[in-house]
Computed example of a mutant assay.
Amino acid sequence: MDAEAEMLLRYLHGLREAMIWKLDGVTEHDARRPLTPTGTNLLGLVKHVASMEMGYFTAPLGRPSPVPMPWLEDGAAFNADLFATEEESRDWVLDFYRTAWRTTDDAVADLGLDAPAQVPWWGENGRTTLGRLVVHLIVETARHAGHADILRELLDGAVGMRPGNDNMPEAEISDWHTHVEELQRLADEFL
């Protein structure tokens, strides 16, 4: 594997780890609980990102999916890739995500970044390369990792990039309360 592919996969791996870290220490109830008006929840985000990853690095590259994804088929429940069913445990979702990782990593190693790809759901712009798919996946995973950051903070106040590095300024809880109060005061100036 060339240096560019290794670099891209290193960034992707960090984002993948951030996604699953957001589930650490969260109850099954809280992992599944909808926290936005559209039903966004932590476990559903992980299932969605895994589905995206599996979807982009199988059929568009002419490779079979090692896991069926009935939630993406016609007739599936509304928004079915963004929540885990009763039968889809947290462990199942995490195993599915790790299978998607291996599928992507194997495709990059086997085919290289210049390999052609055809993404049917991109329409006439669907002809692309595996390298572009990796970049697309990094962007999408980063976007959803940000969603997961916010959901986790709403659940229990936990924030950060990864264990041992929250990437937040050092502050006491009282400092954050004062900061939020000041931001609210500033916003209220525009009522």
Score class of each variant (00 low, 15 high):
R90G: 02
R132F: 08
D110R: 08
Y56Q: 07
D91F: 03
V67N: 05
G55Y: 00
L61S: 11
G62S: 07
Y97N: 00
T58K: 08
R127D: 13
L45F: 08
A100G: 12
P116T: 12
P120G: 07
E53D: 14
G55C: 01
W122C: 01
A77P: 02
T103G: 04
M69W: 02
E87G: 13
L94C: 07
P120R: 15
P64V: 14
E87L: 05
F83K: 06
P66H: 09
W122P: 00
A76I: 05
T103F: 12
E86R: 15
D91C: 03
W101K: 08
P68N: 09
G131N: 06
P64D: 14
A31R: 09
S65F: 01
S65G: 13
T99C: 14
T129S: 13
G126H: 10
S89V: 10
L94S: 07
M52W: 14
R102D: 04
G75Y: 05
T85L: 03
T129Y: 12
V108W: 14
A100Y: 04
W71S: 11
E124G: 02
A100F: 00
F78P: 15
N41R: 03
A59G: 05
W92L: 04
G112N: 02
R90Q: 11
N79G: 07
R132Y: 03
A59N: 04
P116N: 07
F57T: 04
K47E: 10
T85F: 06
P120C: 03
V108R: 00
E28N: 13
D74G: 02
P66F: 04
T129K: 13
M52Y: 13
P116E: 14
M54A: 15
G112M: 03
T129F: 10
T99Q: 09
L113F: 03
A76K: 01
T36Q: 12
W71F: 12
L35Q: 05
